[in-house]
């Protein structure tokens, strides 16, 4: 089982994820239409790039935008979760040892304490994000089962990973389950709402171009996000 998950299935998942993201990314930008979107993307690439960059960058900074500042609680939960969700999978030392063995290179690694902290942070923040969905009427009305499913596949690798990490129960079972959940997540990325991990940049870039080209950027005013 472990063989399969770290072997062929790993390659399958990573390929589906990367190729899927690439294809969808390309399709997204090819699907932009200057006339339907009413943004002259091609005519003003410089203004567009500037706007796109600002729009992404501003929103990546915790409390960097009016949006984040008006909802400090949400912003805290959001960044807590997303920092953990991005940093831990990429820079966990165990992941990088695996990567080193598999493909012969590895990334910078986190020390164990930081990794633990970020993992717990992500889990706790995810809990608050779920709580928010249940408690706040304006979020509850939007929430569907599908949203919980997405949260579940995003959280599953963390929960299984933590269980394995603290050697609760059968280590190799939890480890395999963890790997499987992780790979499932990779596969889900191009096909589900998880696509936001890359389409976030696409969508933000698009609105950034909109503001950069049409809505004031070329008039010399930057959108005060």
């Amino acid at each position: 089982m472990h063989e399969f998950l770290t072997g062929i299935f790993f390659w399958f998942a990573i390929t589906v994820c990367l190729v899927g993201m690439l294809v969808r990314f390309v399709l997204y930008f090819r699907g932009l239409s200057w006339q339907l979107d009413r943004v002259a993307y091609k005519a003003h690439p410089k203004a567009g790039m500037k706007g796109a960059f600002r729009s992404i960058y501003k929103w990546l900074i915790p409390y960097g935008t009016y949006g984040w500042r008006t909802q400090p609680f949400m912003a805290a939960a959001f960044f807590g979760f997303h920092i953990g969700a991005v940093v831990v999978p990429l820079f966990l030392s165990a992941h990088n040892i695996f990567l080193e063995n598999k493909v012969g290179f590895s990334l910078f690694t986190l020390n164990a304490g930081v990794a633990d902290f970020l993992t717990w942070l992500a889990v706790v923040c995810a809990f608050f994000l779920i709580l928010r969905r249940i408690v706040l009427p304006e979020v509850r009305i939007l929430t569907t089962l599908y949203d919980y499913f997405i949260l579940f596949i995003a959280l599953a690798p963390f929960l299984t990973g933590l269980t394995a990490r603290y050697h609760v129960g059968d280590y190799s079972f939890w480890l395999n389950l963890h790997i499987f959940c992780g790979e499932l997540l990779l596969i889900a990325i191009p096909f589900t709402k998880m696509s936001h991990v890359f389409l976030f940049f696409a969508s933000r870039a698009q609105l950034g171009m909109d503001f950069g080209i049409k809505r004031g950027g070329m008039k010399g005013t930057k959108m005060a996000w």
């Binding site: 399709l27 997204y28 930008f29 090819r30 699907g31 932009l32 239409s33 339907l36 979107d37 969905r133 979020v139 939007l142 929430t143 569907t144 949203d147 709402k193 696509s195 936001h196 389409l199 976030f200 696409a202 969508s203 698009q206």
Partner: peptide
């Protein structure tokens, strides 16, 4: 097209 389609798809609710 992709802009609106994506908006509707990735809305995180």
């Amino acid at each position: 097209k992709s802009r609106l389609r994506t908006w509707l798809e990735i809305c995180a609710h």
